[in-house]
Nucleic acid binder design. Structure first.
Lengths: 347, 347
DNA sequence: CTGTTAGCGCTTTCAA
DNA sequence: TTGAAAGCGCTAACAG
């Protein structure tokens, strides 16, 4: 602070070599035959002066920032509603730092279409971005792609060749529904996690229908309701379902958070989970395990999503030949009590 | 991508001025009298060429990165266990971007003492850091401070003059306990959020005792148990308390997550919340509202914590005269059903 | 009011 | 095996 910054020049002088040599030694540049003695002197001088190369200058010279941007296009509340995003972020930065990259965290205020994240690329703050919550009406995304920027999406955009990493929503929903079918249920309702404008929502609904079809069960739209991220929406939707003349014996709720409200609604009319109505959730939020009853649900590879996104992006940046740029990660069924699986065993 | 990068030189040429003028115009440097005509020509040229100043070069020349680092010293699981950190991060990046700063997200793998975050400063990746989860045995922290780096802590370090922003844990715990006292309870137990090695834990315990003392209630260590972040720990602790010869009539659990387990334990022995045992939590996690019963708890200014941290740091970086560098933010009592407040009214 | 010029600290080609 | 020198793109002190 008080003293001037130590530069490679200082190190060179102390070691009695040129700055070039310092750079070669400290960066361990391959193909350079430098005498053991020189090498040692350089290291010693650097240590002695407490020298640290200036990242900015290095970027300047290298023409690369070694930074990836993580752009959150969703509202923050929504993004972090389900404990999912922190894990994604964790995986992302893990993968990044493993490859010597840093992570710039860039949430976009909802409704901000002023191209905030374009600047990340245009002004070269980062070498590329991982974009969470892509929307098909995002003009910035098209623009940025057209300019050849490196972008990886977390989640899919229909009919697009943009590289992405996503979770297998269809497969997960199918697995959840099949689990209920295997337990003997025929009249299975579904509550979505969100309105169908969200692709994840559509995909989960598709998985539910797929499972029914595979088992020869007629899917019935009167058994489908739409959630909206919150427990309240689950409560409302479930009440609606319970008012049906022919009540479902099981329900697949495509979000644990929404399921929370659904369970409440079921209880309130004096029915029990899973004895009267079996329930499977989706997401495996940390609290799913501690709900009453503990929730059978679908676990998503959140860490893997972030890790995969960063990894893919960095390979794109590095110019590696990447053969697979659209990746879908498998989900996992976690059986607890709410589906009644343990109940059947007990009998 | 394909074509070479557009530089201020190109803009200057097209506008028929020098690079200096371009810089002055585009940065709107005060005190420069530039003709309206020139100004317009520069803007036009920049627009036409789709010019964007290179952040790296700019940093190089300015000697400042306009980046703050957010360093997470806790384990990720722990950091994000309670929905708190995402909000902090949100507030942080809001404050940062409002002042033209970007946020570098830097989680430290637990047990990593290799000075990973020292490099953030030493190599000038950032102008300063906000450090979450500081520990008194953190040598890197002392070192970095000694070198004059700008650091703001989220949370306190006893007997230190390092700038920090923290939540009023003592006040919050006191408020929670007083709420129970006001409802007529005398025999009030407490379960901490974590072992006492954590300063937040100690502070909350202190607040609990303070409230008792203020009301002339003898505090009794047999009524204090230690949680450990998880519902399980709350379950165990509560069971332990229930086994006492003289059962408490109320319990203050210094973490909503831990409270979840406590409620379970109470239910399991056939008692009701709040009729038999009143309960107040801490943190106001999003699910607190949807627990059964909805949890009375203490809300923390998570967004404000992050915002305040970034704001303070940036003022420190800018060299502003900052008179108050140790900030404590107020908490808020959120009354729901678990404390029995609404119950009393009903009667 | 505008242009010249000298850095910022590093990498890397080319020559010695 | 090592060194000299040319950038990277921008800012800002100083001249004009």
């Amino acid at each position: 602070m008080s003293t001037k910054r130590v530069t490679s020049h200082d190190v060179a002088r102390l070691a009695g070599v040129s700055r070039t040599t310092v750079s070669f030694v400290l960066n361990n540049v391959p193909g350079m035959q430098i005498s053991e003695d020189t090498r040692r002197r350089v290291f010693e001088a650097a240590r002695q002066l407490n020298y640290h190369p200036d990242a900015t200058a290095r970027r300047m010279a290298a023409g690369q920032t070694n930074v990836i941007g993580f752009v959150l296009r969703q509202s923050h509340e929504q993004a972090f509603a389900d404990h999912f995003m922190p894990q994604v972020l964790s995986g992302l930065s893990q993968a990044a730092s493993a490859q010597g990259f840093h992570t710039l965290f860039e949430p976009i205020p909802p409704g901000d279409n002023s191209g905030t994240y374009l600047r990340l690329i245009n002004e070269r703050h980062a070498d590329g971005i991982v974009l969470s919550g892509p929307r098909s009406d995002d003009e910035d995304l098209l623009k940025i792609r057209a300019e050849g920027a490196k972008v990886v999406l977390l989640g899919q955009l229909p009919d697009s060749d943009i590289p992405f990493v996503d979770v297998d929503n269809v497969g997960g929903a199918c697995m959840a529904t099949q689990h209920l079918i295997e337990l003997g249920h025929q009249r299975i309702a579904m509550i979505t996690n969100a309105p169908l404008a969200y692709t994840a929502s559509t995909a989960r609904l598709a998985g539910y229908r797929q499972a029914l079809t595979l088992s020869g069960i007629q899917s019935d739209d009167r058994l489908v309701r739409y959630g909206n991220f919150t427990p309240q929406s689950g409560y409302t939707a479930m009440n609606d379902l319970l008012a049906q003349e022919l009540r479902p014996t099981a329900v697949f709720v495509a979000s644990d958070t929404v399921a929370l409200g659904a369970v409440q609604a079921i209880r309130q009319v004096g029915l029990r989970v899973p004895e009267d109505i079996a329930l499977v959730g989706f997401d495996d939020i940390p609290l799913a395990e501690f709900m009453d009853p503990p929730l059978t649900t679908i676990r998503l590879p959140a860490l893997g999503l972030g890790f995969g996104g960063a990894d893919l992006l960095i390979r794109l940046i590095s110019g590696d030949e990447v053969n697979l740029t659209q990746i879908i990660l498998e989900t996992q069924l976690v059986v607890r009590d709410s589906s009644g699986a343990n109940l059947s065993i007990r009998k």
